[in-house]
Design a protein around this nucleic acid. Structure first.
Length: 568
RNA sequence: UGGCCUGUAGUUCAAUUGGCGGAACGCCUGAUUCUGGUUCAGGAGGUUGAAGGUUCAAGUCCUUCCAGGCCAGCCA
């Protein structure tokens, strides 16, 4: 987790290296991550974070974290704080924490210069009129009747817009470019709209707020960003991004201390099967009560995944291995799970927990006896040592580890069969106890005292070694602790979860809550601690866990080739 | 019937820039194992979207076609 994954070669690294080789840039690479503080970061943002921070790190540069706070009607301080927390959790640190709103005055001053140069005008058309006159994908637009106002009138109107003299929606400032451009982004784009909203940072100072297109490029430029890496849908906007900077450079020159223009390069965002990242849809899951909130362990948010038990390392490695390109994609959730398991396998403490308990009674075990068994905390890492687990004549094992009419391939318990209880004893099932309805309520077994600790018994007189195929996990009934365990599945039934009507694809079984019996040492586990319940999967205590009620989240199951065989 | 972008194993990406198409994940075998996990060894899987062309040689260059994506917010 401490060593950063080395990023693979891709078209971004190629371009970046070319930019330094050609002398376009000297010095250090500087990127930026520009989240809009109107929601929580999700797995898709994590890709951008890995690229923006990871690439800069790889080339010895830095990354500015810039809150894209140009729309106060949707943005809140709560998100500004959460975003920083999530980025740090992922393991990245920014060079500077900045806000687009830091540049509101500069942006305004430049707008004045653009107006003076005849490159911007105040438009009195309604939003509907503007839309009608914008033309369509195949037809050019029409010039606004207000397009040729005098500089003086534009200056007067724009100043009054700023002073709050006009109603919201009554006027906008537009760049004067080309209403017939085949790139619709260039058809006199809006630079400022009137918005009388309270801004978390600038308060009530401004009645006008800049649009993304007018704010983003210049923010990059002012900060001396070398590479502004963003997703594909901004490809069309790049022409405008460059237009603003070029025009401002002509009209006002470069800002103090700024030597170069920023290069925007677009890459494809990453989609993952069974997950969605649309903020609107995610919010609907919450408002419709499908999930608990932004940090529900089933949510693809950083907070949700963190609560679920994901590690930052696995998320970073996933995006690193996924690569970067320019095509639409749908990564398999299995790939994410693979890197998750890989890391968890190395660090997770092993414990025993029985999710669906059935009582196992050892009929020949001395009544009332309790033994303490040494069990390794992590066989993958002997340095983690061993712990002591109480063993007795009354245990719980997993209901599905017993079968009455077992097929030959069933390596677990069945009447007449012998199995190993992990680090306990070898037991043979003699008979079962059923209730009136015929349900099995207890398994009676005998144990072999020569197998203490789960070890092989000595060979028989002919030197033959007795063997068992199966090893089961267990907890001592008397010592077991009750715990609630939350078992998660995909939130959606279709891999392309984003497709079609959201509510048609909801997996009704995405959360299953069971009452488990767990070994006593688990009472000390803390939220975030990676724990493997042996033979079941990786779990971590939920943030709601308490002394009164222990709660675990299942992060991911172990691979299960038995279940796979059954499925066939 | 506009502009721009993208098509390479099931999936995501590579292919030294024109020189024998690979990896990861997934899938299938086998070995090992006190977790049906891990680990190890091996295997299957490709008309490089299609058709033409240039070339000794094309995934890579050219032409045409097909499919998919983005853009018509006073969102980002």
């Amino acid at each position: 987790m401490t060593d950063e994954p080395t990023l693979k070669k891709n078209f971004l690294t190629e371009e970046i290296e070319a930019d330094f080789a050609s002398g376009r840039y000297t010095g250090k690479i500087l990127t930026r991550f520009p989240p809009e503080p109107n929601g929580y970061l999700h797995i898709g943002h994590a890709k951008a974070i890995c690229i923006d921070f990871g690439l800069a790190q790889q080339y010895g540069g830095g990354t500015n974290l810039r809150m894209d706070d140009t729309n106060p009607s949707k943005e809140e301080q709560e998100y500004i704080d959460a975003i920083q927390d999530d980025i740090r959790w992922l393991g990245y640190e920014w060079k500077n924490l900045l806000y687009a709103s830091d540049y509101f005055q500069q942006l305004y001053d430049w707008a004045i210069e653009l107006i003076k140069a005849g490159l911007a005008y105040v438009d009195d058309q309604t939003a509907d009129e503007m839309r009608a006159n914008r033309g369509t994908l195949t037809e050019p637009g029409k010039n606004s009747p207000f397009r040729d106002r005098s500089v003086e009138e534009n200056l007067d109107l724009f100043t009054r817009m700023k002073n709050g003299e006009f109603d919201e929606g009554s006027r906008v400032l537009r760049a004067k470019i080309d209403m017939a451009s085949p790139n619709i982004v260039m058809r006199d784009p809006t630079m400022y709209r009137i918005m009388k909203a309270h801004h978390p940072r600038t308060g009530d100072k401004w009645c006008i707020y800049p649009m993304y297109d007018y704010a983003h490029g210049q923010s990059d430029w002012l900060e001396g960003i070398t590479h502004s890496l963003c997703s594909l849908e901004f490809k069309n906007n790049r022409q405008l991004y460059e237009w603003f900077i070029d025009r401002i450079a002509e009209v006002s020159g470069f800002p103090e201390g700024v030597k170069h223009k920023t290069r925007q390069i677009e890459f494809a965002r990453g989609n993952i099967s069974y997950m969605i990242t649309s903020k609107r849809k995610l919010l609907k899951l919450i408002t419709d009560g499908i999930v608990e909130g932004w940090n529900d362990p089933r949510m693809p948010t950083i907070r949700g995944m963190r609560r679920r038990g994901f590690t930052p390392g696995s998320i970073k490695r996933f995006w690193d291995e996924a690569g970067v390109a320019k095509r639409e994609n749908l990564l398999e959730y299995a790939k994410l799970e693979s890197f998750l398991r890989d890391e968890l396998n190395k660090i997770a403490q092993r414990r025993m927990a029985v999710l669906d308990p059935i009582k196992l009674v050892i009929t020949n075990y001395p009544e009332g006896q309790v033994e303490v068994m040494d069990v390794p905390n992590n066989p993958e890492n002997p340095d983690d040592g061993k712990r002591q687990v109480p063993f007795s004549g009354e245990l719980y094992i997993e209901r599905e580890d017993f079968m009455e009419d077992a097929p030959k391939k069933f390596f677990r318990l069945s009447v007449g069969k012998e199995v190993r209880l992990r680090c306990g004893y070898w037991v043979t099932c003699t008979d079962v106890v059923k209730d009136e309805e015929g349900n099995i309520i207890q398994l009676n077994c005998t144990y072999d005292p020569q197998t203490r600790g789960g070890n092989n018994p000595p060979p028989d007189a002919e030197g033959k070694q007795r063997k068992v195929k199966g090893t089961l996990h267990w907890v001592s009934a008397e010592h077991a602790v009750d715990a609630e365990v939350r078992l998660y599945e995909h939130l959606f039934t279709k891999p392309k979860a984003e497709e079609g009507e959201l509510m048609d694809n909801i997996n009704a079984d995405s959360l299953k809550i069971v009452n488990a019996k767990v070994e006593p040492s688990l009472v000390d586990a803390k939220p975030g601690d990676p724990i493997q319940f042996e033979r079941l999967g990786y779990f971590t205590p939920d943030i709601t866990t308490s002394d009164e009620k222990i709660v675990f989240n299942r992060t991911v199951t172990l691979k299960d080739s038995w279940a796979k065989m059954q499925g066939k």
